Simulated assay, not measured.
Amino acid sequence: MSGQATDVSVYKFNHTMFRIKDPKVSIPFYENVLGMEKFKESAGSDFTNFFLAFPNGWPTEGLSAKEKEEAFGKREGVLELCWNHGTESDDSFKGYASGNDEPGRGFGHIAITVDNLEAAVKRFDDLKVKFKKRPEDGRMKSIAFIYDPDGYWIEVLEQNKKVEHK
């Protein structure tokens, strides 16, 4: 072990990983529905990892693929999607546990903020995104929950708006 000290004040939460069944379904969802950008793809012998993040605040125009990968790799809020090869064509594959059902309850959701919740909900409706909870449902009127293609929950809330419990 090194005798060097570490400075926890510079630690960052870099990424979360989800296992996905089919990248041909999941990658377009995160790119075209949520607006994330895939900045890295890393293949192993029997799996491939895809790294995505929102490009806002991280100018990437004109950067090479390597420069883009380095820039995004230094940021927070990255989503890693891990595809185990073959799951997309396995008719007996039942999918992954989302963490919100028994057995395996534990993980809950990720969350994104949007500029206008009402407009985002309309856009999700137009794109035929499946909702877990619409803003008008339940006590919390200022949030929505949508499902990704693998059944993971994504909380959607408006930037700079207080979540109200009624």
Score class of each variant (00 low, 15 high):
8 V>I: 12
14 N>E: 07
22 D>L: 09
23 P>R: 08
24 K>P: 00
25 V>F: 06
36 M>Y: 12
38 K>R: 14
40 K>L: 12
41 E>D: 13
42 S>P: 03
44 G>N: 09
45 S>C: 01
49 N>G: 04
50 F>Q: 03
56 N>P: 00
60 T>W: 10
62 G>F: 11
64 S>D: 08
66 K>Y: 06
67 E>F: 03
68 K>C: 10
72 F>P: 02
74 K>M: 13
74 K>W: 02
75 R>I: 02
77 G>I: 03
78 V>S: 02
79 L>V: 15
83 W>D: 13
85 H>T: 11
87 T>H: 14
88 E>N: 08
89 S>A: 10
91 D>V: 06
94 K>G: 08
97 A>F: 12
101 D>S: 09
103 P>G: 13
104 G>A: 14
106 G>I: 02
106 G>W: 10
107 F>H: 10
110 I>R: 05
115 D>P: 00
116 N>W: 00
116 N>K: 02
118 E>H: 01
120 A>F: 01
124 F>D: 04
125 D>I: 06
125 D>Y: 05
126 D>V: 03
127 L>G: 00
130 K>V: 10
132 K>P: 00
137 D>N: 14
137 D>L: 01
141 K>Q: 11
141 K>C: 01
144 A>C: 04
145 F>I: 03
147 Y>E: 07
150 D>T: 02
150 D>V: 05
151 G>K: 07
152 Y>S: 11
153 W>R: 05
159 Q>G: 01
162 K>N: 09
